[in-house]
Amino acid sequence: MRTLILFLLRFKTLFLFLGLELISFWLIVNNNQFQRNHFLSSSNVMVGSVYSLSDKVYKYFSLASVNATLAKKNEDLNTELVQLREQLAFYRQDASYAGRRYHSVQNNYSFITAKVIHFSAVNQKNYFTINKGENDNVKVGMGVVNERGVVGIINSTSSHFSTVMPIVNASSKTSATIKGKTRLGQLSWKGKDLQHATLEEVPLYIPVTIGDTIVTSGYSSTFPEGFMVGKVSSFTERNDNFYNIRVRLAVDFDQLSYVDVIKYQYAEEKAALEKRKGQGND
């Protein structure tokens, strides 16, 4: 026991150092969503590489059956494509359909104007604070836009203030689509540059050109359909049949002053319904 205490005393500087660094590391991993996700995923890289190696070996044994399945799938998809083209032509004729839907969407949303009072543009985890809170009916999960386009999502609220996770936050994920196409993509931010984000999960069969407009999809109640996100500034075709689209964001995050929080009239009703449906499946 005595020797143990002597040992600890002798290296007290080193132990204090290690102790403080451990506390810091614990704080980092526990409190920052970005680092936590990364910590888990990087440990998964090792697991993944082992599996992919074994997978490579197994693949050769099943090539014939894989080919047959693919041919069948191709046939199915071609049939579906023809059907969808016919449907599309049908809907294009019915122009009032789109107008009606747009109108109903317009009526169920209202806006709460707020002023940006603090923007901490630290490198990966950007947040900003606005001067409206629970007293003004701002709730977690509501969308935030300004006159140029989509800004972000309410992250937490107090009675008079709220923090917003902008789309330029490494943890932010927003579904968006190319204007005129229905296929969804996921908008995320890779760090580095406040003016560009990345749109992924858009498959290669959809034609994309530089300058195409990216808008919100309207599938979640956070943003109504058709809000401006940005324009395609460049894109690359990846090996896995998806695009990697670089999006020039419409909002200038260096000059945020006033923003509008979007309130969906039936948000609670919709959430309750979707929750009930989830329970039914269990």
Binding site: L20, S24, F25, V29
Partner: peptide, 17 residues
């Protein structure tokens, strides 16, 4: 203050050591 809980503490402790 910067929403980077732990990062500065880690780096600064390292330098103080």
């Amino acid at each position: 203050f910067c929403d980077t809980l732990g990062c500065n503490a880690f780096a600064t402790t390292f330098v103080s050591f």
